[in-house]
């Protein structure tokens, strides 16, 4: 299990675009694991299309926080609320965040979300069910309102020896999670052998989430 061992791993993920068919299971798993309110997508699936009829191809692109080695969100954060763990995961200290949203503007991958007010998924005027109460409390306890939030590779699950929820949920095994420093880890092998690449390298953030080509 990544995260367990003598040496601190450098956590990363590989997303195989050949395998992804855009079912949104990762999004649902992320939402149910982290209780993110409406409009917040720590895990997200984008859809793209290319080519002229009849040679048109559609492709899904699952995105999340890429836990960049050189995160621009951390660079611009004026308070030091955004910090990097030893394993390379970028996290937010909710007690330091002033909610200026500068990190959101600075992230070239759209991984930052801030909610100004917690909202229910159900329309106004209805009393919250006990599960919604629970979701609200969990969100306020773990992430909070008025502060910037982001994916942290499911910190709590990793602490308990589990993979991130999106990785666990993927029915096509399109997400592979592991230690990028270990040359024998599954993600390292996949990146090496199958032409793994990062999105928009021109931003210079050095993301740690790699993609395998669509074909």
């Amino acid at each position: 299990m990544p995260g367990v061992g003598t040496k601190t791993p450098r956590l990363g993920m590989v997303i195989d675009l050949k395998r992804c068919y855009g079912c949104y299971a990762c999004v649902t798993a992320c939402k149910t694991e982290n209780f993110t309110p409406p409009g917040v997508f720590w895990a997200r699936v984008l859809k793209g299309e290319t080519g002229e009829y009849p040679n048109t191809v559609r492709q899904a692109l699952p995105v999340l926080c890429f836990q960049c080695e050189d995160p621009s969100c951390m660079t611009v954060c004026p308070t030091g609320a955004t910090y990097q763990e030893d394993d390379g995961v970028v996290r937010v200290d909710r007690n330091k965040c002033i909610g200026c949203n500068y990190c959101k503007m600075a992230c070239p991958y759209g991984a930052r979300y801030m909610v100004e007010k917690w909202e229910s998924y159900f329309p106004d005027g209805l009393p919250l069910s006990e599960y919604e109460e629970y979701a609200k409390n969990r969100w306020e306890e773990k992430s909070g309102v008025g502060v910037s939030t982001k994916c942290d590779f499911c910190f709590e699950r990793r602490e308990n020896g589990m993979e991130p929820a999106c990785v666990r949920a993927c029915p096509a095994n399109a997400r592979i999670f592991g230690d990028l420093d270990d040359p024998d880890s599954e993600p390292s092998i996949l990146i090496r052998d199958n032409g793994g690449y990062v999105l928009n390298p021109e931003h210079g953030n050095k993301p740690k989430v790699y993609y395998l080509p669509t074909r």
């Binding site: 951390m74 611009v76 954060c77 308070t79 330091k96 002033i98 200026c100 008025g146």
Partner: peptide, 25 residues
């Protein structure tokens, strides 16, 4: 007024080395 957490504004000058908000403050 636009900040999510106005009461912590005093923290905003912490990272003048990298952040333009800190420099601006």
């Amino acid at each position: 007024a636009h900040l999510g957490n106005p009461l912590r504004t005093y923290l905003a000058a912490s990272k003048a080395g990298t952040s333009w908000i800190s420099r601006g403050v």
